[in-house]
């Protein structure tokens, strides 16, 4: 006794077999190669712009550090000038013991 197949499964099996010969167009691989090359170029330019961005970011950091260092240098110069003036005022009018 032969088993009767579900008509839906039968139709799907027939369509599977009938579409087995589907292949990409000639030149499809070349089309993919072009698309991948374009993607590669886009990725490299993205990386280059990332590099520029990083340089600019690090430049900003360096600038901020330099400004801070300059501020500290000015502050310590002013401080040391003031200290010198104080020392000079104390020394004025005193007698050097060494002169005896």
């Amino acid at each position: 006794m032969s088993e009767r197949r579900d008509p839906i499964e039968e139709r799907l099996a027939r369509l599977a077999e009938a579409t087995d010969s589907i292949r990409p167009h000639p030149g499809f691989e070349a089309r993919i190669a072009d698309a991948v090359a374009a993607e590669r170029a886009a990725l490299s330019s993205l990386r280059a712009s990332d590099w520029v961005f990083n340089v600019v970011q690090s430049g900003r950091l360096v600038l901020a550090a330099a400004a801070l260092a300059a501020g500290i240098a000015v502050f310590s110069a002013v401080e040391s000038a003031a200290a010198y003036d104080r020392e000079a005022a104390v020394a004025y009018g005193t007698v050097e013991l060494g002169a005896w």
């Binding site: 139709r11 027939r14 369509l15 009938a18 579409t19 087995d20 010969s21 589907i22 292949r23 990409p24 167009h25 000639p26």
Partner: peptide
């Protein structure tokens, strides 16, 4: 349009409609 027999393309159309 593409590689495959006429039957294959008709079958694709049938699959799409179904």
């Amino acid at each position: 349009d593409g590689i495959g027999s006429a039957e294959a393309h008709l079958a694709l159309r049938e699959l799409d409609d179904w």
